[in-house]
């Protein structure tokens, strides 16, 4: 059964949409990530215009982050103060990102920038995650390894506007989380992702937050960043297709349940290793598309 998507202006088989949601939902449940970095390229691959894919995915991530953050809130694993600062940065960054997105689209370079962002950031994060999980797997095999310090002090801790974050047990400058939030916000708006895959490592390695609060706090701020992208894209470009978002969400909710059950079968470092491979696979695929000669050097875009 086909359904005509009113904003994307294409018709797509309903089974494909729900299947995509389910598949990506399964992986996001398995690995504990949002899955935007998989979904947005897949939507584009299935013929959804890039602008619609990015905006609609932002809308879908609002929902998956809300359902994810509730579980973390019950366990008290959200640092609202830190989340608030990250969110403030994220809202500023994603607003800039939406403007940048429109500009790049008008000069015909948005596809290139989306692809390059994917290659660069998925490449870096994937490689780091793979190295880390391999190290952990190796270390667990030979006992007696020494544990490093939780975090090192460096020049970043000398910045002004210091604030105390009780839940994260930190006393650091507010500029740092604000800047991280803004940076990830720009990427979220351009790449059609929540940005958790960059935010989480940044929180652990740059801010030195305890791992227990990292995921919950990241999800908390992602809700606001993606909601901001949804609103701004709706106003500026009318590219949010909530029929598509709703169907994807339906599949994703079910897929995520199976995914999170399956995740108990594997160990943490194994999961991270697999996720790293998945991230690198997406990076390589998109990178390959950039270097291989396109079938047709000319392309046409319908303007309004």
């Amino acid at each position: 059964m086909y359904i005509y998507l009113p904003i994307a202006e294409v018709s797509m088989h309903i089974g494909i949409i729900i299947g995509l949601g389910g598949g990506v939902g399964f992986l996001s449940g398995l690995f504990g990530v949002g899955g935007g970095f998989l979904m947005t390229p897949l939507l584009i691959f299935f013929g959804i215009p890039p602008a619609v894919a990015v905006s609609t995915e932002a809308n879908q991530i609002v929902a998956s982050s809300v359902s994810g953050v509730l579980a973390h809130m019950r366990r008290g694993n959200v640092d609202f103060k830190m989340g608030g600062i990250l969110m403030l940065g994220g809202v500023i960054g994603s607003s800039l990102g939406v403007v940048l997105f429109s500009f790049l689209r008008s000069i015909g370079q948005i596809d290139l920038v989306i692809k390059l962002s994917y290659v660069v950031f998925l490449g870096i994060i994937g490689a780091l995650m793979l190295a880390e999980s391999l190290r952990t797997i190796m270390r667990s095999r030979k006992p007696g390894g020494t544990r490093g310090k939780l975090h090192q002090h460096n020049w970043l801790h000398g910045l002004p506007f210091k604030m105390r974050f009780r839940r994260s047990k930190l006393y650091i400058s507010a500029i740092l989380p604000l800047a991280i939030g803004a940076f990830v916000g720009v990427l979220a708006a351009i790449m059609g992702v929540g940005g958790g895959f960059i935010m989480v490592p940044a929180m652990i390695y740059l801010l030195g937050m305890p791992t227990s609060v990292v995921v919950g706090t990241s999800l908390f701020q992602i809700i606001f960043v993606t909601a901001n992208v949804t609103l701004l894209q709706s106003i500026q470009t009318q590219t949010v297709d909530f029929v598509l978002a709703g169907l994807l969400l339906f599949g994703a909710v079910i897929g995520a349940q199976f995914g999170s059950r399956a995740s108990s079968v594997l160990r943490g470092e194994q999961l991270r290793g697999l996720l790293a491979l998945l991230v690198l696979a997406v990076c390589v695929k998109i990178g390959y598309d950039l270097v291989v000669r396109p079938e047709d050097l000319l392309s046409v875009e319908l303007l309004k």
Partner: peptide, 29 residues
């Protein structure tokens, strides 16, 4: 209906899409 809503009342459409997402996320949880 959806297309006209998105173009004629785009801010409301955006807010609606957000509320819709928040509610369905909460329901799912």
């Amino acid at each position: 209906l959806i297309y006209n809503f998105a173009h004629d009342y785009s801010a409301f459409y955006g807010l609606f899409a957000i509320v819709f997402a928040v509610c369905s996320g909460w329901l799912a949880a």
